[in-house]
Design a binder for these strands. Structure first.
Lengths: 188, 188
DNA sequence: TCGGTATCGATACCAATCGTAGCGAAATTG
DNA sequence: CAATTTCGCTACGATTGGTATCGATACCGA
């Protein structure tokens, strides 16, 4: 919805590396000031970019943060060779991602904005969750509702810890969470 | 922090049932417009109360919603007779509470404001989570870190589902969640 | 090389919001 | 009845999300 194709771009001033700069500034600002405190003015200032430039690329703050989150999470990490190994490494992967500065706070902020913005919930569901859900469904051979519950469990638990303490979950707890989830969803 | 003792009140206009009216209006407004959309002006209008009256009782929107959430959740429901039964009924209890209109959205909104407001995180931790954590520690005889992980798992999962779909979790999924949690935390 | 085009930066701007101040009115205690 | 405290109301300042405008800039194609 926001990033336009870089190929066949008509003449004009280049996009340069603005997307990357704004993404980095967004995460940094959200990390330092929280989702609410990360105003568009501050993000623009942190990126060294005019606020109007940001609004030319993203229609709203929510859309910017959503794109930023998608960029920060990166591609689906599943290998697809071993069910147990896929889920285990996936849990550690998302735990590490959510622990990165700003990622957890951005995630939570999007949920809140999404309550009053169905379009944003659509982005969250289709562009953030669905890629991982589909990959997990294929890797595990489990029905959709079970994979959705698995995602709720893993991501929800990690985010709740972040929200309550402000700190990412320690490894020992991630391991315990992984044990519980594996026993329920993989060892069937 | 906000509610002052009703006894030994000096003369003057009564507090009447303003707290209860404002709590109800807050939940209703958060349910309809989301945490961000629930402005103090709108909450005041919905409660039929002046905005200044609200600010005289709660120092910030976050503090209001936190008190509102504490009021909505009510007392710890554990009976303390059977470990398994306590956890099971507790999970259904919190699932139902989070499904009530506005409660889930209020919860999530507090997390977001809490990122940039340590005082609010303190309220969340000490007045919302701790009562249940302590009761669970006593009822289960488990160490603090395991009870904290249990709470993260149950509440986080339910809130993540609310945030993603906008709808509370269906009973079948709550049952599956309860099975998983019981096996890990109670059946040791 | 040079014109056309599209983006960038800067400033100004609007509506909405949080939170506060001041003041007269109302209600309750004694 | 009188003192006291809170209430409602209006107005206000500071911020914020988002828009409009306009000159400057950099790229593309000829």
């Amino acid at each position: 919805m926001t990033r336009r194709p870089t190929s066949a771009r008509p003449p004009g001033r280049p996009r340069a590396g603005i997307d990357a700069v704004v993404f980095a500034a967004t995460l940094r600002t959200v990390h330092e000031l929280g989702y609410t405190g990360a105003t568009m003015d501050r993000i623009a200032a942190a990126a060294g970019v005019a606020k109007t430039t940001i609004y030319r690329r993203w229609p709203s703050k929510g859309a910017l943060v959503a794109d930023c989150l998608i960029d920060a999470l990166g591609p689906v990490p599943l290998q697809g060779v071993d069910r147990r190994e896929d889920v285990l490494s996936g849990i550690y992967w998302i735990a590490e991602k959510i622990g990165e500065p700003g990622v957890g706070a951005a995630f939570a902020g999007l949920f809140v904005d999404g309550v009053s913005d169905p379009g944003l919930r659509e982005i969250l569901s289709s562009r953030v969750q669905d890629p991982y859900r589909l990959a997990l469904q294929e890797a595990l051979g489990e029905p959709e509702h079970r994979v959705l519950l698995l995602i709720d469990t893993v991501v929800g638990t990690l985010l709740h810890r972040m929200g309550m303490t402000g700190e990412p979950m320690v490894d020992a707890d991630v391991t315990a969470l992984a044990d519980m989830v594996l026993r329920h969803f993989v060892d069937s």
